[in-house]
Every structure is written in structure tokens, then in C-alpha cells.
Amino acid sequence: MSTPVLDVRGLTYAYPDGTQALWGVDLHVHRGERVALLGPNGAGKTTFVLHLNGVLGPSSAQGEGRIEISGMPVRRDTLAEIRRRVGIVFQDPDDQLFMPTVRDDVAFGPANLGLRGAQLDERVGEALERVGMTAYASRPPHHLSFGQRRRVAVATVLAMRPEILVLDEPSSNLDPASRRELAEIVAELDVTVLMVTHDLPYALQLCERSVILSGGVIVADGPTRAVLADGELMAAHRLELPFGFDPARRH
């Protein structure tokens, strides 16, 4: 089998106040997969995500374990390349967008990689096109709607040409139309995706495989449809399907 894009082994972590969030997480994601990471509020999903690009982890000395991205271990000396390979779209687009215009914001990452001039413009144009925001390039991000801001946030990460795209609660706070538009964008992308969510229909729509993070460990791993259909498993980990939603039925 090929080297997994994402290889996590025995990851533990405790918050600075002493509360332990991760109790030994193991997860492998292979090239081209779209995996949903499901879990109730407070399961440690966002904490886990912050380990993937080394924001939390070895340097913060509050946990152990090993993470490799396409064979490269996440360490202090590899952080720059790791952060290019792992593109995280944070839950709140306002945390992600801080430059005066959409174009500048999308250019921020590639410019840090050293791109300039025509090459940079090409990257920015390509990323904006993939999320359908080309027409908004010169607008200030805070003048856009929430859904548009989230799409720009996705573009800022795509412009880095990551090997794995990590989406933290991509559908949260979106109206149904924006939610559907974002799903169409993600479905079109030719990139490995790890989607952290408790929006179960969204997971079923976009990801063939799902894992459940609960109590700081992975407690289930399988085809999304099978995981969602296991009522006992779902109930044990506070995961509930929306009223009237039946995972066995094609949507």
C-alpha cells in the first residue's frame, strides 16, 4: 500500500489547564480519499485538527504521538513544508481572512511560499475560480456574505496547493443554498479531504468514509452509510441524525 497522505499514531494531548482532550488517536487517510471526522461537541475534533499542521503538538510539550504527512513527520524543523501540505479551513472565516482585499488574502499564503508577479496572480486566479469568487477579487472580505467569506477561506487554502484539505465544520452557519454551493465546490476538487463535522447528511453527501472521534479516541471507522446506519453506535456517541433523514435511502 502507498504511503498514506495522513498517518497519525498514538496521539495524546492535554490542554494547558490539565484537561486531557486526546487519548491516543490513530488515523490513516490515503490519497484521493474524502473522509468525514464525526464527533459530538467537545470530542476534541478541533484540537485534533490543530495537530495536523503542527500548531499544537510536539513543540507544546503537552502530549505525545506521531503524525506524518505523505511520509514527512510533523516536527519543528519540518513545519514550513507541513503547513504547505496541510491546508486547514478554520471554522470561522473571520479568523482566516485578515487582508484588505480578497485578492490579497488569497495571495498571502503563496506569497509566503515565495511566489511573485505573474506566477502569484495565476495561483490566486485559479484558486478564486475554483470557488466561484473571481468577480469579488478586489472586494474587502468583510463586505461579503458569510457563505462567500467561507468560500474565500477555502480559496486561501487551495492557493497553497495542499496535499490534504482539512475543513473544520464547513457547513456551520450556512444557509441551505450556500451549504449546497459549498458542497458542489468540494465535490469538484481533486484533492484529499478530511472534513470535520457534526452535519451528518453533509458527511454522507461528500465522504465515502467516516470515522467517529469520541472521548479522545477513534471509536468507529467505516463506510459513511454503514456508520450512520448503526443506531446503537451513533447513540452511544451523542450523534443524532436530523429529523426525517434516513441514511439508507439515496438522497
Binding site: 498514538g10 495524546t12 494531548y13 492535554a14 494547558p16 489547564d17 486531557q20 487519548w23 491516543g24 488517536v25 490513530d26 488515523l27 490513516h28 510539550a61 503537552q62 502530549g63 505525545e64 470515522v211 472521548g215 479522545g216 479516541v217 477513534i218 471509536v219 468507529a220 471507522d221
Partner: peptide, 27 residues
């Protein structure tokens, strides 16, 4: 009280320890 890790002089007062693990499924 909330984030002792943000207080420089309090750092030496905290001792990192080895964290326990729980069993999970392996992918």
C-alpha cells in the same frame, strides 16, 4: 486561572507528565 500557559513566570510551576491512553479502533 484560565490559561496558565500564557503566564511566563508560571511556566516553571507546571510539570508536564506522561498522558494516559484509551483503546480505540485502528484504521
Amino acid at each position: 486561572g484560565v490559561r496558565p500557559d500564557l503566564v511566563h513566570v508560571a511556566r516553571s510551576l507546571r510539570s508536564p507528565e506522561r498522558l494516559p491512553t484509551r483503546p480505540g479502533v485502528h484504521s
